[in-house]
Each structure stands twice: as structure tokens, then as C-alpha cells.
Amino acid sequence: MRNYILRRLAIMLVSLVGVSIIIFVSIRLVPGDVVSLMMGQQGDMAAGQAEQMRKLFGLDRPMYIQYLDWAGDIIRGDFGVSLRSGRPILPDILLRTPITLELASLSALIALVVSIPMGVFAAVKRDSIPALLAQVGSLGGLSIPAFWLGTMVILFSSRYLHFYGGGTYISPREDLIGNLRMFALPSLTVGFSLSAALVRYTRSAMLEILGEDYVRTARAKGLWEFRVVMRHALPNAMIPIITVIGLQMGFLLGGVVVIESVFALPGMGRLVVDAINQRDYPMVQGVILLLTGIVMLTSLVVDLMYAYVDPRIRYE
């Protein structure tokens, strides 16, 4: 197991170097550099300053030198300074990391708590009306775009509950209730969308497992149906479910930018999209590198969990 983890970490390192080169080059291939975007429509005013600014940012140097400088700084733990705001990048990323992680974790938790029982129920009582309703609900969740649901949720809560709560992050260490109030609406919105997919995966995985010989054997032994489902069927259905959650976590870490914007949550998604729109090269590189690292680690954790839920899987 230890060798396996070390090997995976070594592969991760090589992958990160590859990713860093791809990010570095690709963001520079996008038309419109940071200076153009900074000047925006005021370009007629600042036209004479463009070259001066590029020189100050070091963008006039060959690309490989810029890369080597940046990579050397990263190895030393220095993510550089935002070209747009002049602020050091790492503190700005670290400021957003707990917000994104909390949103992702709470959404995943809500999705798990809702979807696994619903999916299991929909499989076990597959012809019942509640099971049908669960399926319809999950189809609705898949069909309704999260940004629309989010907008409806905030309009409803601000109009009738006089509550919005976005804009300012409240740390759980300072005020746990305030923190949970802040995350309640966005994590319910994201959790709802996420659970829709999980219900379907859980249901189909359970249906497959419930048809297996060993489940029939368990039933033939006279085991209580609840025990058959919870002890013999569900653990074996968990592998595809864990896979989906692992994949969704990658999405949740960087892909819920619309939800972050609607709820004014200052997370990583918003940071990276703003940075891309503004061509803030070091910020884009720093955030994507970090997100890539987190997603790779999540994937490693998911792989290790396979072995935990299914003892037949061994990592040598």
C-alpha cells in the first residue's frame, strides 16, 4: 500500500509539471493579454502605455524564461504577484480555499444523505409510487440548471424570508451558526443538483447488485431484507457511487462558479474565472495548479477508498 501511494504521488508530481506547462502556454495563446484587458475600452487613452506596462510585467521576455522563473518561484513556495491587483497570489488563494472546500463538502454531504437512501429505496421498492417520485425528482434535479435554481432560491429567501447572507465569509471558528446560515442556500442548491445524479447511480448500482447470486443466497438463508440490503448489497454498490462522488468533487472545486457568483461566495471558481477573463497569468497558473493538485489527491483518496469498501481490492 505504501509503495502504491508513493508511486501515485510520484506520478502526480510529473503530471503537475506537465499541467503547469500546458496552463502556462495555453493561457498565453488566448488572444488579448493582461495589458489589453486592463486597458479595456480605455485603450485609446492609454495606448502609449501598453508596451511600458508589458515591460514592467516582464511579458516582453521569451516565454521559456518566463516559465522557468515562475516554476522556480513555485518550487520555493512563491506563487508570485497578481498582475491585475498587485497582491501576492498565495494568500488570496488560501483565503478562498476553505470556502470552496466547505461548499463542496457540505454539498456532497447533503447529496449523500439525500441520494443514497432515495436511490436504495428506489431500487428495493422499484415499482412503488414513492420510488417513482424519487426517480421523477432526480430527473427534475438533473434537468433544472443550478444557476436558475440558485436564482430562484435567493429571490424567494430575500423576498419572503428577508435573508440573503452572501458577500461576506463567516468562518466557522468565529460563528458556526452564521457560517452554516451562509452556506445553507448554496449548498442546498448544489447538493440538490448533485444528489439527482447520485440517486440514479445508486439506484442502478443497487438494481444490479440485488440481482446477484449472493444476494439471492442471503435471502434464501432467511436473512432479514434490511440486513440483505444494508450488509450485502449496498457496500458492493458503493464503488460506482464513490467514483461518481470523486468525479463530482473535482467539478465542485472549480466548476460551481455560477453558484459562487449568484450567492456572492468568494470561492476558487470565481477567482479562476475572473483571472482567466482578465488574463491574470500568474493567478490563473497558481489557482489551476493548486486545483489540479487537489483533484489528483481526491482521486487518490477515492482509489484508496475502493480498497476500504471492497476488501477484494488490494494495492500492491
Binding site: T151, L155, S157, R159, G166, G167, V262, A264
Partner: peptide, 13 residues
């Protein structure tokens, strides 16, 4: 609050 609807909600609330 970057989103228009977010600012509307903050005003309403």
C-alpha cells in the same frame, strides 16, 4: 456581489 440577482436579493433582504 458580482451577480445582478445577488445584488437585487441583498437589497430585498
Amino acid at each position: 456581489i458580482p451577480d445582478d440577482q445577488g445584488r437585487v436579493a441583498a437589497l430585498r433582504a
